[in-house]
């Protein structure tokens, strides 16, 4: 039986999740991948605010394909998370509690997950059509000129994910 978790993603809600648990996620998530991570952190280091409030926020690493008429969004599966590793400790220390992507993370990210009581969920890579059906609304909120790499605010409902790294730092990729 899949557990259901809805935002806002407070650390209390995430604390007892264990690596390997199947979860259906609902709520608001923000999309960001390579270009947005680079720019958000560069701007933050220059004293500017992040494009959304990081407190208990969820970031989904995705660059969706465009929506056809009548669709909310196109294909929207996760991209490889490790490419965001250089930026992730800063993002987690800033208050983000949920990361959604695919594949293993580096040791600095695992340490930052433990330090902050965050959780890293994996969605199924290559299941972009299926995941698109869980997305109820999509709005670009920053870096529109980046196209697919823009920051979007998505409302998701029952998106299937697996706890890949739990708040204690246990990982499904290390067995």
């Amino acid at each position: 039986m899949n557990r259901k978790i809805s935002g806002p993603f407070t650390k209390e809600k995430l604390a007892d999740l264990k690596a390997g648990d199947a979860v259906l996620l609902s709520g608001i998530v923000y999309t960001a991948r390579d270009a947005a991570h680079r720019r958000m952190t560069e701007e933050a280091n220059a004293g500017q605010p992040f494009p959304f409030d990081l407190t208990d926020a969820a970031i989904y690493y995705v660059g969706p394909s465009p929506a056809a008429p009548g669709q909310v969004i196109g294909s929207a599966g996760p991209t490889s998370s490790y490419r965001m590793d250089p930026y992730t400790p800063q993002i987690l220390d800033g208050g983000v509690s949920v990361l959604i992507g695919k594949g293993p993370r580096g040791p600095e990210v695992i340490d930052a997950i433990k330090r902050n009581g965050a959780v890293y969920f994996a969605a199924v890579g290559g299941a972009g059509a299926l995941i698109s059906q869980c997305i109820k609304s999509s709005e670009v909120i920053a870096y529109e000129e980046y196209g697919t790499e823009a920051v979007r605010k998505l409302e998701i409902e029952d998106m299937p994910v697996i706890v890949a790294i739990d708040s204690a730092g246990n990982s499904v990729y290390e067995r």
Binding site: Q71, A76, G77, G126
Partner: peptide, 25 residues
Amino acid sequence: ISILEQIEHNIEIAEETGIPLCQDT
């Protein structure tokens, strides 16, 4: 098994909706 089921389901949804199998086209 649950991941492979999602992958199978994804193939069906792409076929029915015309949405690409993967966002990385």
